[in-house]
Design a protein around this nucleic acid. Sequence first.
DNA 1: GTCTATAAGCTGATAGAC
DNA 2: GTCTATCAGCTTATAGAC
Lengths: 199, 199
Amino acid sequence: MEESLTTEQKIIEAAEGVFLTEGYAGARMQQIADRAGINKAMLHYYFRSKDKLFELVFRHKMKQFVPQIALTLQDDQLSFLDKLDRFVMAYLEMLRKNPSLPLFILSTMNRNPDLMVHFKIEVGQMVVQVMKDEISKGKIRPVDPHQFMLTLVGMCIFPFLARPVFMGIFNLNQEAYAAIVAERHLHVMQYARAILSVS
Amino acid sequence: MEESLTTEQKIIEAAEGVFLTEGYAGARMQQIADRAGINKAMLHYYFRSKDKLFELVFRHKMKQFVPQIALTLQDDQLSFLDKLDRFVMAYLEMLRKNPSLPLFILSTMNRNPDLMVHFKIEVGQMVVQVMKDEISKGKIRPVDPHQFMLTLVGMCIFPFLARPVFMGIFNLNQEAYAAIVAERHLHVMQYARAILSVS
DNA sequence: GTCTATAAGCTGATAGAC
DNA sequence: GTCTATCAGCTTATAGAC
C-alpha cells in the first residue's frame, strides 16, 4: 500500500473531515494541516484562504447531498413506487457512508442562504412534474408533491440529524440506533405506499 | 411603553438571538453586547464567560425543544390520534415562533453529544409505553414506536431545517414555503392516521 | 513545494476608574 | 453596576530561506 495521494488531495480530504464535523466557524486551519500531515502554510499555498478552501469543500458536498439519483425517476419502465424504492435505498446508503453530511449542508445553508444561487438545480422541478404526470394518469393518488417530497427525503435525512438527541430521549445505545437506521428503508416505503397507492 | 427589562434579561435575550443564528463557534461576545445595548465587559460581570452564558441559553432552549407537551399523551379520555393531533398542532406552532431552534439544538448536540447526560428526560420512555399499551389494546396498529416517533417529530421539525435548501431545489419563494409550513399539520396527521388506524 | 518565523488582526477576559 | 482601556492568546495569512 503506497502513499499515492498528492498534497492537494490530502488537503482536500483533511478539509472535508474537519469542516464537516466542526463547521466553518469551528474549523481551524491548523487542524486541517495536522490531519493532512503537512504545514499550515501549505494550505494557503494551494488554496489561498480558508474561505476558498471551504467553498471548494462545500460545492463538492452539496452535489453529494442533492440526490442526483432522483433524475432516474424519469426514465425506464419501472412503476413510480419501484423507482422511489430504488431512490430511497441509494440515498440512505449514501447517508450511512456520510452521516455528518446533512447537518453540514443544512447548517451552512441556513447561515448563508445566498449560497443557493450558485447551484443550478433542476431536479426539484423535474420530480414535481413526474409526480403530476403520474397523478393525472391515475397511477398514484393526488398529493401535494412538495409535502410528499419534504416528508420522504426528511424521513431519510432526519435520523442522521437527530441521532444524539433521539439516543438520549429514548435511551438508546449505538447498536439500537444503528438498527433503526438499518430498518429505515422499510418505514419510508411504508409511508410512500400508504400515501400514494391507489386503492 | 417603558424599558422595563433588567440588564440581565437584556443580555439573555440578546445571547439567545445571537447563539441561535450563529452557533457557539460563530457567535461573538461583541455582537451580543451590541444587541443588548450594553458593554462587552458587562457580559463577563453577569455571566463570567462565553461558556457559561452559552450553557444557560442552551439549557433553556433544550427544554423548549424537547416537547413536554408529549406528557399530555398520558392523561384524559381523548383517543390516541386526537392526542397526537393536539400535540402536533402545539409543537408546530412553537416551531413557527422559533424557526431556528431545531438547527441550534441539533448542531450543538452533534458537536457535543455529552451534553445529553445533563438532561434527565423521561418523555421518550413514556411515549413508547403509551404506544405499546394502545397496541396491545388493539386501539392502533402494531408499529415500531421509535420509527413512528422519529417520523412524526421529524415531519414537524424538518421543514425548519431544510428551508433554504428546499426553497432552492423547488424554486419556491417565501410565501410558497410559508404556505407549505402552514399546511404541514394536515400531512403529519395524514401520515399518523395512515400508519396507526385500525381498519 | 515545503518549511520556519512572524506579522496583523481579532477575541475572550480582566483591571481599574467612576 | 457600568464604563474605558488593555492584556494575553489565538487565528488567518504572508515573507522569505531552502
